[in-house]
Simulated scan of single mutants.
Amino acid sequence: MGAVTPLVKENKPSGSVKPIVDLTKADMERVNALILSKAGSDVEMIPEVANHLISSGGKRLRPMLTLATAQMFGYQGDSHVRLATSVEFMHTATLLHDDVVDESDLRRGKSSARMIWGNQASVLVGDFLLGQAFRMMVETGSMEALRVLSDAAALIAEGEVFQLAVSKKMETTKDDYIAVIRGKTAELFAAAAEVGPIIAGASAEEQQALRNYGMNLGLAFQLVDDVLDYGGSSADLGKNVGDDFREGKITMPVILAYQHGDDAEKAFWRKAMEDGENDDAALEKARTLIARHNALNASVSLALEYGEAARRALAFAPDTPVRDALMDVVDFCIARIS
Rank of each mutant, 00 (worst) to 15 (best):
V166R: 14
D244F: 11
L217P: 03
T85F: 04
C333D: 08
G231F: 14
D78S: 14
A179C: 05
M1A: 15
D319A: 14
S338T: 07
N11P: 00
A298N: 07
E103F: 01
A152I: 05
V87P: 03
A200C: 08
D42W: 03
G141L: 01
E274C: 11
Q163R: 06
E284F: 04
L210F: 15
L23Y: 11
L302H: 03
R312Q: 15
H80K: 13
V8M: 08
I255M: 11
K59F: 05
E171F: 11
P19Q: 09
H293A: 03
L155S: 12
I250Y: 03
E29R: 14
D279S: 10
A291F: 07
G276P: 07
I178R: 11
K12D: 04
Q76G: 00
V161F: 14
K239H: 10
T92Q: 05
F332I: 00
E194N: 05
L155H: 14
E205P: 07
K174T: 12
L61K: 04
Q208H: 15
V241E: 10
R147A: 15
R108P: 01
D42N: 13
R182A: 13
R287T: 05
I199G: 10
P47Y: 11
F268E: 06
E88R: 01
A282Q: 07
I255P: 11
A33S: 13
I250K: 03
T185S: 11
K25M: 00
W269R: 04
P318C: 06
L36V: 12
A84G: 02
E206F: 08
E274W: 04
I54F: 13
R287S: 09
Q120D: 15
F89S: 03
D244E: 09
E284C: 00
L53D: 10
Q163T: 03
A295Q: 05
V166I: 14
V21M: 12
G183L: 00
F189I: 00
L219S: 05
A152H: 07
M137N: 09
L228S: 07
G74L: 10
I198S: 12
A186T: 01
V138H: 09
L237V: 07
Y213I: 01
D27L: 10
Q207V: 15
G118L: 03
M170D: 01
E265V: 09
E139P: 01
A272D: 09
G58D: 04
F245C: 06
A267Q: 13
A165N: 09
S104M: 01
L223Y: 13
D127F: 12
G231N: 13
R135P: 00
E284Y: 04
T172R: 11
N297I: 00
R107T: 02
N278F: 07
N51D: 08
L83Q: 04
D98S: 04
S55I: 00
M327L: 14
D236T: 01
G248I: 02
M90H: 12
L146T: 12
P19V: 04
S37M: 09
A282C: 08
S41A: 10
M115W: 08
A298I: 01
R147N: 15
Q76S: 11
Q222H: 13
A179Y: 07
L96S: 06
